[in-house]
Write a protein that binds this DNA or RNA. Sequence first.
DNA 1: CTCACATCCTGGATGC
DNA 2: TGCATCCAGGATGTGA
Length: 295
Amino acid sequence: MPELPEVETVRRGLAPVMEGARIVKVEVRRGDLRWPLAKDFAKRIAGATVDGLGRRAKYLIADLSSGDVLMMHLGMSGSFHIIQDAKNEKRNARPGDFHHARGKIGAHDHIVFHMSNGATVTFNDPRRFGSMKLVARAKLDREPLLSALGPEPLGNEFDAGVLAKACAGKKTSLKAALLDQRVVAGLGNIYVCEALYRARLSPKRQASTIADRKGAPNERAVALVDAIKVVLHDAIKAGGSSLRDHRQADGTLGYFQHSFRVYDREGEPCQDCKGTIKRIVQSGRSTFYCPGCQK
DNA sequence: CTCACATCCTGGATGC
DNA sequence: TGCATCCAGGATGTGA
């Protein structure tokens, strides 16, 4: 489930048990994720305190007291779960508190962090498209996984001018351009579909048509940037989207999937016109849109 | 350079 | 029920 809103939701769920706590021990149960973990991965982390847990695009970034930074990506099927120490849970439990993932390390729990506060944080990823990488903080500005990323869509620096410039001259579709992390970082298939619907722009439209000949933004670029910010903001507020029962780190379900206007709604009526939501395939991925509203 | 496409991997849904 | 097929939230490397 992991696009920007889901990763941000995971970050907010993990921060309370990780920030300020020491990683006592790391278990690498399977190190062959998207890329094999470095042989000294666990040893390099053990004993470090997590000074902060941040996010860049779809990467979680833990700042460690050792001088390293731990980059984590959820891929397609990655998730984190918190197993609370029983004593702590009893002590801290309040009525209405969220349900914590219950007790046991299970299949596909590839990486397990044992924290000094008694919490256990597991990284689960059936498809193993996720990844973890340790990088010296001093070298982070030259980290290849980050250096090519476009702007954060919720940041002030992301506006119609920036998006138009990135799309100017692009022959490819708007859909493909928005999925390109170099254009804007953090969108995935769901939120691209939803943002295009909200901006009333066709996913098939050539990307360059949100800019004039000089690369300046037109009204389409303005609408698109606005739609992207609104949909991401709303999704984060809803705790992300829970597809196929995917859960947040604290065990609760996000509910933004109920706000999908087009994603996975092929054949259903459009909420704005009399049309029907259609599914097409663009560069091998499903695109959902309303041909009536989106031009 | 830019773009379309296959590919990594597993599990769930669907169809016969 | 059993088995085959298709599809999936991402990102990269390829080949045209």
